[in-house]
Design a protein around this nucleic acid. Structure first.
Length: 498
DNA sequence: CGTATTTGACCCGCGC
DNA sequence: GCGCGGGTCAAATACG
């Protein structure tokens, strides 16, 4: 009887393991790359199946665990269970690897679509030149390609090449962008397009508008003027913000001409060792691995916000739902705010880990702490309403060596500004967090899993950045030097360290 | 000399 | 309509 039970559960486990292995074979990620559309759906299915199978394994283990007591083969069963659990753990790691690959694949898909859209945009622009389809500039600005053909980019580049004469009545090109941005707040549907489905384009407009405006904030302790996130930035402004004696600095991504991504960096008024970096926009160019964390996080967060704000904010922002789904454990914080003016995700990396977290073994998977009671404000966020606070992971507990950080980001000029003592482990941790694709994968995959559960169609679509369409200006301006700088893509150290 | 940063001016949205 | 604050521009300046 006892032996039969063991055999039964072992058989069940083996069957499940077999299915998981079949699903998660090492060829999964690469084989899925070939067909974009099939890739996302296929991986989603695989991940879902794998999760289901792992649950079966868990159940078998638990049931066996319950029944084994007082049996004569207790010791043998324990050994067996230990092996089962170990195998189970390995399978989980495989699943996480698949999820990471899936996420990387999504980013790859995003890049491919961006390139595709650039081509489309140019084709469209060409048609316009021939007068077949006259699309008003304003429409172009409001369209899905919005960011890419923003006149702002001409102004962005005007630093380095002579500005065209202000023949528009002295209104700077950036002003039209600002007007457009203000229009975006109301998500005004675009003027009729001869070949467009108004409803569909309206939805796309809304998605694009939110994508464009969504922000990711990172709070981290750092003495450096700016955290290293793998991207190249140029400072274009600084302002004193009300209520904070520390100036706020404005940076623009210079890794590619016309990249719409910007960030603001400001020290916390209360604790000046805390640096708050707010990212806005979506990169219109492929990113080095070290820079994909923020981009992916932004994209995933926006997807989440989209799926929630568009249909069911309560459902999306239900902490227990998210806790069940993706964030089973945790200690420091991430905040997701869908409230005005911009949907914002804030990651608080300033909290020291506790001992248990430091001691916990670190399987290469995302384990975001997320107590259900984390609904009340834990750290100050401008938007006080409609927030969900997510207690997040042991990322804040990363204690990476300064040497690792240095080797990770050998080039960006911002590093030159870092204090000579790179022994600031918090800075290193921050950099690691923002640069670690595993973090990206963890957060993005977690968020994507929610999205896929609620809105299967939106997860990958929302990564679709069409902002590069019809971007034709200043492709060769001053960014050549910075963009040519080699960002060391090898960040496997972080994975190994964790 | 080319590039990046600084900084005062400007524009816009918003609240009153 | 006006003032305030946020965000950006672009000439001046600094830097390598």
């Amino acid at each position: 009887m006892e032996v039969n039970e063991v055999d039964f559960f072992s058989a069940e486990r083996r069957k499940a393991v077999g299915r998981v292995e079949a699903d998660l074979g090492p060829k999964v990620p690469s084989s899925c790359i070939k067909k974009e559309d099939l890739t996302i759906a296929g991986l989603n299915l695989l991940i879902g199946n794998a999760r289901s199978d792992l649950s079966t394994v868990d159940d078998a283990v638990l049931q066996a665990d319950d029944r084994k007591e007082s049996k004569s083969e207790l010791a043998a069963m324990r050994d067996e269970l230990a092996r089962v659990k170990e195998e189970n753990q390995k399978l989980r790691e495989m699943l996480n690897q698949a999820i990471s690959n899936y996420n990387a694949l999504q980013m790859h898909l995003t890049a491919l679509r961006q390139q595709h859209d650039v081509v489309d945009g140019r084709v469209e622009a060409k048609n316009d030149e021939h007068g077949e389809v006259l699309v008003p500039r304003q429409f172009m600005d409001l369209g899905p390609a919005g960011d890419a053909d923003e006149p702002s980019h001409s102004s962005t580049a005007t630093r380095d090449r002579p500005s065209p004469p202000p023949d528009n009545g002295g209104v700077r090109s950036m002003d039209s962008e600002r007007r457009k941005r203000s229009t975006d707040k109301e998500i005004v549907p675009p003027p009729d397009h001869p070949n467009s489905n108004r409803e569909e384009s309206s939805t796309e407009q809304a998605h694009e508008a939110i994508m464009r405006k969504a922000r990711v904030s990172v709070r981290a302790r750092s003495d450096a003027p700016m955290i290293a996130d793998g991207c190249q930035w140029r400072k274009y402004g600084q302002k004193m913000a009300k209520g904070n004696p520390c100036p706020r600095a404005y940076y623009r991504c210079t890794m590619a001409a016309g990249c719409p991504v910007r960030k603001q960096v400001q020290r916390c008024a209360d604790d000046r060792s805390i640096l708050t970096t707010t990212y806005e926009g979506t990169h219109n160019h492929p990113l080095p691995p070290a820079a994909m964390a923020m981009a992916s996080t932004t994209s995933a967060a926006v997807s989440m916000l989209l799926s929630g704000s568009m249909s069911s904010p309560e459902g999306l922002m239900n902490p227990s739902f998210m806790a069940r789904t993706v964030l089973p454990f945790s200690s420091s914080m991430a905040t997701i705010s869908a409230s005005a003016p911009f949907p914002t995700v804030m990651l608080d990396l300033t909290h020291r880990p506790d001992a248990t977290q430091l001691q916990r073994p670190a399987p290469a998977q995302f384990q975001f702490p997320f107590p259900a009671a984390a609904a009340a404000g834990y750290f100050p966020v401008p938007n006080a309403s409609g927030q969900t606070h997510i207690n997040q992971s042991r990322f804040s507990g990363l204690q990476l060596s300064a040497a690792m950080e240095a080797s990770e980001f050998p080039h960006p000029k911002e590093h030159a500004a870092l204090p000579p003592s790179l022994a600031d482990t918090v800075t290193a941790a921050t950099a690691a967090i923002t640069a670690d694709p595993n973090f990206t994968a963890a957060l993005a995959a977690a968020i994507s899993s929610i999205i896929n559960g609620n809105h299967p169609a939106t997860a990958s679509d929302n990564h679709d950045n069409r902002s590069t369409a019809s971007r034709t200006i200043n492709e060769d301006d001053n960014n050549a030097t910075t963009s040519s700088k080699d960002i060391n893509p090898s960040n496997t150290n972080f994975t190994a360290t964790k």
